[in-house]
Design a protein around this nucleic acid. Sequence first.
DNA 1: CCATATCAATCACTATAACTGATATATTTG
DNA 2: CAAATATATCAGTTATAGTGATTGATATGG
Lengths: 294, 294
Amino acid sequence: MDASDLKMFESVARLGGMNRAAEELNTVQSNVTQRIKRLEDELGTPLFDRHSRGVSLTAAGKRLMPYARDIRNILEDARRAVTDDGTPAGPLILGSLETTAALRLNQHFTSFVSSWPNVDFTLRTGTTQELTDMVLNREVEGAFGCGPVDHPDLLTDPVFNEQLVILSAPGFKNLDDVFARPDVRMVVLRRGCSYRQRMEEVLTRRGIVTPRILEFGTLEVIVSTVAAGLGITMLPKTLVGHTWQSGNVAVHTLPSTEASVETVYIHRRDTRQSSAAVAFLDMVRQGMTAQAAE
Amino acid sequence: MDASDLKMFESVARLGGMNRAAEELNTVQSNVTQRIKRLEDELGTPLFDRHSRGVSLTAAGKRLMPYARDIRNILEDARRAVTDDGTPAGPLILGSLETTAALRLNQHFTSFVSSWPNVDFTLRTGTTQELTDMVLNREVEGAFGCGPVDHPDLLTDPVFNEQLVILSAPGFKNLDDVFARPDVRMVVLRRGCSYRQRMEEVLTRRGIVTPRILEFGTLEVIVSTVAAGLGITMLPKTLVGHTWQSGNVAVHTLPSTEASVETVYIHRRDTRQSSAAVAFLDMVRQGMTAQAAE
DNA sequence: CCATATCAATCACTATAACTGATATATTTG
DNA sequence: CAAATATATCAGTTATAGTGATTGATATGG
């Protein structure tokens, strides 16, 4: 039983036929048939039921399937680990919440890419659930999502721990005043923004359901919209303090239970992170502490 | 890069030389040299530094090493999983604390072996630390140890949760009377008994240090020794209640914080348990609930 | 300092295994 | 019943792995 045997086995199982597998593997059907047969002989048990429209896995074949996938993945990881000499290089595919990318990561993209010109950086975005699935399916090496994430195959490392505050037009003295307005609108960065859900929870808890939503592409526009009294928004405290003077908008703190949101780096437990990923994480973390120290 | 390549690689790395590896692998040196070279070419980086006394791993080789081991282990597991059709058969190698084996498991050995004549059962004993290492090194498939065990590669399933009690000669009315005797001796099943350590803690907490120890091979002897007033012992409550009448010895309960000890089944997170192991665990657990129901 | 031992690299050769292409056989589909 | 689509088998070819002898380099011990 060898890795190439398992590769062939996996192909046959996935495609449900030896002809199709042969085509995928750029070989001929007789070769596939023979090697599967040899594998079955070696293991002492049939792996496929043959029928006129192809083959299907036997119970033994089903048991072998996850191992075939594991072997393939590990060989891939091994090749990557050997090639990776500590200098970030090659493809780096990460995932992120769109909000996190826009608010936290974007400032690092250019410097990262220029620091490590041999890295091909790709960022995919989605909800935390989608990101989690991407990590599990190895579509991305890791992802920045909203914690906590609980899955036996995943590990999460905290990256940002943000205190959220509500912004409103300057006229409002406290949260009660803000929520007193019957036609309060939510101003959010993106429809799928993770803060939006959190904000809805906050509003719901105060008896305000499904408020109308305004969506803008940049923070500046959001803040100026809020300043103009067209709605309220919820943003990390640290972003607010530095970027805009508090004169334009009123900042309302929330109870700590509602205010805290943790951004975590999600990655597979069984996969070593590439140098490129480590370097990017370091850069992001360093940016955070630098910002916090200001 | 194939499993056989990695097998050869691992052999060379472990033995520190291609000649030695060739001998181990029942082939010739030139073959090993050529295949290592081919592997290095394929990966685009040297894996070994050659010197006059053999070879040593380069940084890239060191990175490959754990993957080579993983591949070997997974192939082994895969073969076992495919062969294992759900009926317990083949080798079953478990570990256990000696005390647990003697007090809890022994009653199941004969019935298990007669129920599943195709299983070759092996039991190895040691301390929880030793058992944990055995599981990590794959010397045993799983082990019954003293919880909690915390290791990222291991999982633990609770099996027994026992309340420990102290046994003394019938004359003593309570624990204070027992500990009032200056020459109190500990009677234990084995020197390495896990309960011994617990008992020492209990005694230490009451100002009694390094008591003298009496060691006997069977419970019956221990209890009769205690009954004769030669010392005290600490045993699971459930064992005491049924096996001996309370007339012979005095049973002293401990505060719940000290009294509880949990036996867990320790196994690798990344390895599927064999049908034989599952069957044995089931039998042990069933025995427990049956006993608890009495 | 030299004989010897140990080690990896190279190379021509052999043995083995993997692969190919043609053919056989079985089953479904129109 | 013919056509399409499967897998199985087999003889022949190709590619790969393994062998044995040789070379050159480096230590070790007298």
